[in-house]
């Protein structure tokens, strides 16, 4: 076919005003699409990890190292692992304070109100921090359970209960202190609550017979009660966040 058979379009006149108007509409629509950005869970975790205080995370890791060293010492010395169990309970019950101090940071510096008004509110931020520190706790407890259970003539379930009961109890006490306190001095009070809880968790060290089978029922009951209290404390925190009365400074 020759060129003279090609269809030629007429020159289309572009109305500049209309063009600008339409471009504006497209820009607005594009802007709207971008503002709908929602970070993935992975993105939220990665983002929050960058801002977790090194002091709190470091403290938590230091406690873990301390427990491992303690374990190595007891094993090398061939000492009674039930004593280690008691000592490990004391240390692991103290570990929770680092999460509390991390959660407390926004309270101490008056950031709660602002953070709560953001897309990722306090519920999400605290949830991420609790999961991060909780995973480290679980890792720690798992290693300890595995280490002790084989060497102290105690079953895995028994060791789990003996370790978890003081750990959960301590966390309840610290969460209670967390909901009660505010202001910059609360870090010290939070630390005080952790020391108190650790000391209480050291009581079985004075009475090693408490780790005997006869008392196992008592331990299970104590753990169940502590779990109920923990759930209740978490619900109280959620309600306080929902109502907002505990968030605002005055």
């Amino acid at each position: 076919m020759g060129n003279h058979h090609k269809i030629r379009l007429e020159q289309v006149e572009i109305e500049e005003k209309e063009r600008q108007k339409r471009l504006c509409r497209i820009a607005e629509a594009a802007e709207g699409m971008v503002s709908g950005y929602a970070p993935s869970w992975y993105g939220v975790f990665r983002g929050q990890l960058r801002y977790i205080s090194g002091y709190c995370l470091g403290g938590q890791l230091l406690c873990m190292v301390l427990l491992v060293l303690l374990f190595a010492y007891f094993q090398r010395k061939g000492a009674d692992m039930r004593v280690y169990l008691g000592a490990a309970s004391v240390v692991s019950s103290f570990v929770g304070v680092f999460l509390m101090m991390e959660l407390n940071r926004c309270k101490s510096f008056g950031m709660m109100e602002l953070e709560q008004s953001c897309y990722l509110g306090l519920k999400q931020i605290w949830c991420v921090k609790m999961i991060v520190f909780g995973c480290l706790d679980i890792l720690l407890l798992t290693v300890m359970v595995a280490g002790i259970a084989g060497r102290a003539s105690l079953g895995v379930l028994q060791v789990m209960v003996y370790l978890l009961a003081p750990f959960v109890f301590s966390n309840v006490l610290q969460l209670f202190a967390f909901t009660l306190l505010r202001g910059q001095r609360n870090e010290y009070l939070q630390m005080g609550a952790a020391v108190l809880a650790s000391m209480a968790c050291g009581i079985p060290l004075l009475f090693p017979e408490m780790y005997k089978g006869a008392y196992f029922g008592f331990w299970v009951l104590a753990l169940a009660a502590a779990v109920v209290c923990l759930v209740k404390e978490i619900l109280v925190i959620c309600q306080k966040l929902e109502e907002g009365d505990g968030i605002c400074w005055n």
């Binding site: 929602a38 801002y51 940071r105 926004c106 109100e113 602002l114 953001c118």
Partner: peptide, 25 residues
């Protein structure tokens, strides 16, 4: 907020980055 809170050890830039993260920018 009226009582504007901030993390004193954050730099201005880091603080803005932190809030951009929370605001899902």
């Amino acid at each position: 907020p009226k009582e504007f809170g901030y993390y004193p050890n954050f730099t201005v830039h880091r603080y803005m980055e932190y809030l951009a993260e929370l605001k899902a920018v």
